[in-house]
């Protein structure tokens, strides 16, 4: 359904999420049509002109109890079989970090800072006292682990078909890290680190959409993300490294 409205299923879990959306809408459709027909029928059949004397006892409906039961059953199935497993897979069951692309994303009014750990796989220490315009993350450059770190603003590249783990936080207010084509959305809460993971399966260029009101620039808190082949990603990393070199 979301695909039909223009959002490609860009990640491995997209289909699972979309399936829950689809099923709930099928349930809605059935109920809307069913009750709609009943509604229209009663409005016409039992108008005063056609039925001058009302029946005090009304409908003796046994089927309404069964209908109620069916709706409950449908909801239980949606919940237990589909939604809870799908959601739990998102917030638990993380892949191993060495086999994944791991980044920190630090949101601020009104930009996305993306922090790559570099070849050593270790994020350098950050300190708010070091934050300035050239160093939006407050990275401690004197530290060994920080030497090979990369950071970008509003630009998030990743290789396709490899799990991505994003450790998400914010410097100021609550933002929400939305990647609509990846079926990823997670609040970035200052003071807390939330992690989110997904496996992009489709290459392309899309936008990071801030999904939580974060101030007057919320509407333009737009970043870009690119899913590319491993070779293209490696080339991009090299390019960024050269840009950052003093």
């Amino acid at each position: 359904m979301l695909e039909w409205f223009g959002l490609p299923q860009g990640s491995a879990h997209s289909a699972e999420i979309d399936y829950v959306v689809d099923l709930t809408h099928w349930l809605m459709l059935v109920l809307c049509v069913g009750w709609g027909l009943f509604f229209v029928y009663t409005l016409i059949r039992f108008r005063q002109g056609a039925n001058p004397v009302a029946n005090h006892h009304g409908i003796k409906a046994v089927w309404s109890k069964y209908l109620e039961g069916l709706i409950v059953l449908a909801e239980v199935v949606l919940l237990v079989v589909f939604s809870i497993p799908a959601y739990n897979a998102r917030v638990a069951a993380f892949p191993a970090e060495p086999q994944s692309t791991v980044v920190r994303v630090v949101a601020e009014q009104f930009a996305w800072n993306v922090h790559y750990p570099g070849p050593d796989g270790v994020f350098g220490r950050t300190d708010i006292r070091l934050v300035n315009t050239d160093n939006p993350l407050g990275l401690d450059r004197s530290e060994a682990a920080a030497k090979d770190d990369l950071f970008t603003i509003n630009e998030f590249n990743m290789p396709v078909d490899k799990p991505v783990i994003v450790h998400l936080t914010s410097k100021d207010v609550i933002h929400s890290f939305g990647l609509p084509q990846m079926r990823v959305k997670q609040d970035a809460v200052p003071g807390l680190v939330h992690s989110v993971w997904f496996t992009p399966t489709m290459t392309g260029d899309w936008e990071i959409a801030c999904s939580q009101l974060c101030g007057l620039g919320h509407y333009r808190m737009r970043g870009f993300y690119t899913v590319q082949s491993q070779a293209d990603f490696n080339a991009w990393v090299q390019e960024q490294r050269e840009l950052m070199a003093p």
Binding site: I17, S83, Y87, P180, K185
Partner: peptide, 19 residues
């Protein structure tokens, strides 16, 4: 009420939340 269903299911809420 019915359109609350997908929002109340955390998995379907991911794409729909804050839209």
């Amino acid at each position: 009420g019915l359109t609350g269903l997908p929002l109340g299911l955390a998995s379907a809420d991911i794409p729909l939340h804050d839209t």
